[in-house]
Amino acid sequence: MLTKRIIACLDVRGGRVVKGVQFVDIVDAGDPAELARRHAAAGADEVVLLDITATHEGRGTLLETVRRAAAKLFVPFTVGGGVRTADDAAAVFNAGADKVSINSAAIARPQLIGEIGANFGAQAVIVAIDARRGAKLPEDAEVYVSGGREPTGLRVVEWAREAESRGAGEILLTSMDTDGMRDGFDCELTAAVSQAVQIPVIASGGAGSAAHFAEVFGRGKADAALAASIFHFGATSSRELKVQLALAGVSVRLPC
């Protein structure tokens, strides 16, 4: 049976893993290569490295960090941040990434999704969407870019559909409303997007407990869920999380 994936996310700034609350307040959490390995060993199904400042500072992804992190990582590895062209993507793949996550650049030039897919396959292209809706309905959630700094006027569900039609392999949906609050995912928004597309949807933003993951896999219809701070500070490990999810009836890969 296809299991629900738990994805460990490393937000990187200046070569170090950091974690923000609602995208700002930053705390240092360690070396990316070391943390990537530790997550995989602890049972994370995938590892994502996001260079969170790359876009707004206008510099490329930290290829050296990617290379070091990928060297001994034998689970799928996604890299995002600062990938603006098919050449940027190629450099990230050559450094050892299996998938790239694109966000602002895909909004600016949606053809980029298909261009990367043409060379590396649709499965290698994740379109990341930063969403904010406040008190509005999920259908009215708006897409933000540049690390959550700029509103675009695009509706999240519509953009997810377009990304799929342009050849995205997966959608990584982050709720800016719930991000870093550890108060649960935005299940309504996740379900709205998951039902609008055929491709897998990864939920992000708000993980605080195993119950939150069970909710987003159930009510939120997410195929995978991503979390960062819940793991970094030793609050829980993927292994503990998965045991709790299995007990709650969620199908997960239990590491041996």
Partner: peptide, 12 residues
């Protein structure tokens, strides 16, 4: 039941 495609993830 609608089947999502691609088949992505860990299966047995």
């Amino acid at each position: 039941v609608e089947l999502k495609s691609p088949h992505v993830g860990w299966n047995s």
